[in-house]
């Protein structure tokens, strides 16, 4: 379970958001929506302590991660699989090694076991044929799928997706959405999806958090969102629907 309590963050003089309170139960899929630059990715990077807040706490399974020393923080981070916006593949090594990377550093598996696990993971994302390709040879959608294969290789309890469908054609975007649902169902993981793609939200999410105006503007289930008449939320949702 992830609990965010009264979290505030600013970069220099610029306030990102303040007093954010949010709870994600195990097995849920939370979508964090909001305009570009409203600090969705910043919020995500607080959840696994990549960034440090000005004030507030984040509890992962009851542990305040900002009270832990660096070594223990890194242990907590291993509960998370993270799919970055640009996939963040290591461009000096090939697809296979990218996916195998965490296994090599954090497990004592044999080369054979690593191979099995990596190919299994690549099969989930339908990329077993691209194992020997370098990241520069991959398309945007393939990169994201490799990134996802890497994110799940350590069998994390939580998977966080940073703009998983942005920059992709609708068909590829939908493949990614299917994968998000697949991962959530297959591995029973808790997911946090950061997106401004309402189609994706409606497809994958159980709950929605709407960041607007430097605060958590709205938080509830998909059904509640449909029924909500909060002006900024309805405006954001409608703008997205027109986009489709």
């Amino acid at each position: 379970m992830i609990e965010i309590r009264n979290l505030s963050k600013s970069f220099g003089d610029m306030l990102v958001w303040e007093h954010v309170n949010l709870t994600v139960a195990d097995g849920e899929t939370l979508a964090v929506i909001g305009k570009s630059g409203c600090g969705k990715s910043v919020l995500l990077k607080h959840i696994n302590a990549l960034l440090t807040p000005d004030s507030g706490e984040v509890y992962i399974d009851g542990q305040n991660i900002f009270n832990l020393d660096y070594v223990l923080q890194r242990k907590v981070r291993q509960k998370f699989g993270l799919l970055f916006q640009g996939a963040a593949l290591f461009d000096s090594i090939d697809t296979f090694e990218n996916v195998a990377f965490p296994l090599r550093y954090f497990t004592k598996l044999s080369e054979k076991e690593i191979r099995e696990k990596v190919m299994q993971s690549l099969t989930y994302v339908n990329l077993e044929k691209a194992a020997s390709k370098m990241p520069s040879e991959l398309s945007g959608g393939m990169k994201k799928r490799v990134g996802l294969a890497r994110a799940i290789i350590m069998e994390p309890k939580y998977i966080m997706y940073d703009e998983p469908t942005s920059g992709l054609d609708p068909q590829t975007a939908d493949e990614i959405n299917e994968l998000i649902i697949f991962m959530a169902e297959t591995f029973d993981v808790t997911s946090i999806v950061i997106t401004h793609d309402m189609f994706s939200v409606l497809k994958v999410a159980d709950k929605v958090a709407f960041l607007n105006d430097q605060k958590l503007s709205w938080f509830g289930t998909i059904e509640e969102m449909r029924l909500s008449d909060q002006p900024d939320l309805t405006e954001f949702v409608r703008a997205s629907e027109y986009q489709i």
Binding site: K45, R74, R77, F84, F90, D91, P102
Partner: peptide, 13 residues
């Protein structure tokens, strides 16, 4: 390209 974040998010220093 967030590769450093990716390293950190895996729990690597």
């Amino acid at each position: 390209t967030e590769q450093i974040d990716a390293l950190e998010s895996m729990g690597l220093n």
